[in-house]
Write a protein that binds this DNA or RNA. Structure first.
Lengths: 149, 149
DNA sequence: CGACGCGTGTCAGTTTTCTGACATGCACCA
DNA sequence: TGGTGCATGTCAGAAAACTGACACGCGTCG
């Protein structure tokens, strides 16, 4: 080990740790969402719609970090099952603004509580200051990664 | 907005930001690995094997954060294409220790350089101290998420 | 010794997500 | 007015990951 410049040294790599943390979070969320019959993307979509009603399919896709094609599949299912409504035709352009139904809102309520608990558990043992610093660090990483394409 | 306890407030959620950062990293890695004909999991497998030769399929799966079934599919492809070797039969138990071939090592070398550049870019603008703090913060989150199942 | 639990490698089928492609509608500008 | 660029919604096929299931080898313990 410790070949001079060759390896990435996964045990010390922030990138690797980032993936590890993200995976741990996803697994924890799946764990609490499964009993509710929900996937993470499913939940993300509902949560986004609760915070910004009228978001389009493409906007939701960007917000949930999937392609608009994947989100479209999900939205059609959510619409079919009565969690979400979209107008049959666009009022302007092609954009179809989506809305939560009462059923969607109620379903989200349970899920949101469960996910909030997971996030609280994740942050246990960190001070407000540490959380704020971690927040800024992650923001910086995102900014740097997206900048100099 | 700002319904008291109801929402998760995605713009202030460390969990959401964690997913965002992880996605940005994955996208950036895919961008530089695609010209080399490699996926992220593909690269992860090779990097793991370089650091710890003789890892088994299941160990590689855990290290790359996929199921052992997924890793098995990948390993078979890597073996077929001559990046990796595994003994035909287990010396002890069922564990088949994998090894990089010279071709695998060479292929990894390019990929590793590209990925290292991405990580450097990601950390641009952060001091050593900030990186160290971010590292400890992420470690803490992983630990907390895995602990009180 | 025999039973049990646990980890492993692997096969099969399903689900999810992605890439590619097309038509449509808006905004902009020559 | 017509052209160009860009974003959107959607369809279709392909790639990647997952869940379920089975057989096998090892260790432990009654």
């Amino acid at each position: 080990m410790s070949k001079e410049g060759a390896g990435v040294d996964l045990d010390k790599s922030l990138g690797y740790l980032l993936k590890e943390a993200s995976t741990a979070l996803r697994v924890a969320m799946e764990e609490v969402l499964r009993p509710l019959g929900m996937t993470v993307t499913h939940y993300s979509c509902l949560e986004l719609l609760a915070q910004r009603p009228g978001m389009s399919n493409s906007e939701l896709a960007r917000g949930a970090f999937v392609t608009r094609q994947s989100m479209n599949v999900l939205l059609q299912a959510l619409e079919r099952d009565g969690y979400v409504t979209r107008p049959a035709e666009a009022a302007v352009g092609k954009v179809l603004p989506a809305q939560l139904t009462p059923r969607g809102r109620q379903s989200l309520e349970e899920a949101s509580a469960a996910v909030r608990a997971v996030e609280v558990r994740m942050l246990a043992g960190m001070t407000e200051n540490e959380q704020e610093r971690a927040f800024r660090a992650l923001r910086s990483m995102v900014h740097s990664l997206r900048g100099p394409a």
